[in-house]
Nucleic acid binder design. Structure first.
Length: 253
DNA sequence: CGCGTTTGACCGGCGC
DNA sequence: GCGCCGGTCAAACGCG
């Protein structure tokens, strides 16, 4: 399902912005030893699971230290390794106008909003109208009657799992985040020319989902939206997913 | 044969 | 109430 991971690289712009629910955090990476802070709002019980930035507490500041130097900066303590699958052939990047192997860009934001709305908005997350998401526990397990097709109507979740979104400049849609995903749907959303793909974690009892779509304004940008939390480790072996000094996410600033 | 993808249909939320 | 739209389902299909 995943395209073969050829590099294990995540590449970011110099000075990439972390965006978390209307909050924009500038990442000053001018020094070889840089750091950025994530001020987590109290209403966001999120965990940056794809990157292993675990902070489910409120009003805490999670500091991620970026160490390394030069153009290749390693974030060695993030796990699991978050690796894109960028083609390594230089020619593949030519049409981008700039080599994505040299420059890429990730924005992060998060939300526990009701519905996903990974719209074309580059910065921030739309606050969905939560007041309308009334939870009705009795409205479950209905069967469609008289339809052309008898299908189980599962209790649709009225309350969404915490969501975690980020934007990546990549030629490949599906980023290798260490988990195994199964595609269960694809939809062309309005005002976009690129379809949105829906993936579910293949692990049993794990209900994590993710959506992948390309930014309308900039098709080079891939918006990945995670929903829910994994109840298991990445499918990779631990020693693979546990970054060591030699296996890690590499960032280009 | 098992697993993953594709794709059209269905369902529910939401705005008007 | 109606229609639009996003999200999900599941049969069909493809591939190893």
């Amino acid at each position: 399902m995943f395209p073969s991971t050829t590099s294990g690289l995540v590449m970011m712009n110099r000075g990439a912005n972390l965006v978390e629910n209307h909050q924009e955090i500038n990442m000053d990476t001018t020094n070889s030893h840089s750091s950025f802070n994530l001020q987590q709002p109290s209403h966001l019980p999120l965990s940056f699971s794809p990157f292993g930035i675990q902070n489910n507490l409120t009003n805490e500041t999670t500091t991620c230290t970026v160490r390394g130097g030069g153009d290749h900066t390693n974030i060695s303590h993030l796990r699991p390794p978050f690796s894109s699958s960028l083609p390594q052939e230089h020619g593949d990047h030519d049409h981008l106008g700039e080599s994505s192997a040299q420059r890429s860009h990730i924005d992060l934001w998060a939300s526990n909003d009701k519905l996903g709305s990974a719209s074309a908005s580059v910065v921030g997350v739309e606050r969905m109208n939560h007041s309308k998401s009334r939870t009705n526990p009795n409205n479950n397990s209905l069967l469609s009657v008289g339809g052309m097709r008898m299908k189980k109507v599962k209790a649709r979740r009225k309350v969404r799992e915490p969501r975690f979104c980020f934007k990546t400049m990549s030629e490949v849609d599906v980023l290798d985040d260490g988990y195994k995903w199964r595609k269960y749907g694809q939809k062309v959303v309005k005002n976009t020319q690129h379809p949105r793909s829906y993936y579910r974690c293949t692990q049993e009892n794990c209900r994590v989902k993710k959506r992948i779509e390309r930014l309308a304004e900039d098709p080079r940008m891939v918006i990945t939206t995670y929903e829910g939390r994994h109840v298991h480790s990445p499918s990779h072996d631990d020693e693979e997913s546990q970054p060591s000094s030699s296996s890690k996410v590499t960032l280009f600033w």
